[in-house]
Design a protein around this nucleic acid. Structure first.
Lengths: 87, 87
DNA sequence: CGGTATCCACGACGATACTG
DNA sequence: CAGTATCGTCGTGGATACCG
């Protein structure tokens, strides 16, 4: 369930950027240069269908529902650190 | 990094079962009947290569490193609940 | 029981070109 | 600028059959 929300290459990175505030398509691309327009579009469509992101006047932004993912993202990075520390 | 550890269909479910203690191949299969032997093998090989699981006398069990994933798994399920609650 | 070996289907991803 | 369309490739997973 929550895995669906963050699965797919790049998804966590897109979400991390959106956690800081609304961003336009171009701003998202600029932050993730290796991500193609096509895949970014796919990710955004998927996230919008899940009610995690909306498209408004200021670009794309997280919904209330999307903000529920913040602790998960945080834990994801924390665990990544821990795995690096204990090899 | 931590995403690699939990990516792949079934991986989180295999890990959740192993959190309870060592399990044999057959016990893992019994717990996840829809999971084919081939995919379970793949998952276990991958997890062993990442140092998350070892194969011992009692079957497969989490390493010290593997136990680092516990908070992440917990957060994953907690977030899943939250997403269901707030539609 | 505890896997390994093959083959096949499907979806994800990347590159490129194009459009309003 | 903000996407959409198309195509080819590759990885993942499922089904099935087989082995020590």
């Amino acid at each position: 369930m929550s895995l669906a929300a963050i699965s797919g290459r790049w998804t966590t990175l897109v979400l991390r950027d959106l956690m800081l505030g609304p961003l336009t398509f171009g701003q998202l691309r600029a932050g993730l240069p290796a991500l193609s327009a096509k895949v970014l579009t796919e990710r955004l469509v998927s996230l919008r269908h899940q009610g995690i992101v909306t498209r408004g006047a200021r670009g794309y932004e997280l919904t209330e529902r999307g903000r529920l993912l913040r602790p998960l993202l945080a834990q994801l990075y924390r665990t990544g650190e821990a795995l690096l520390a204990e090899p």
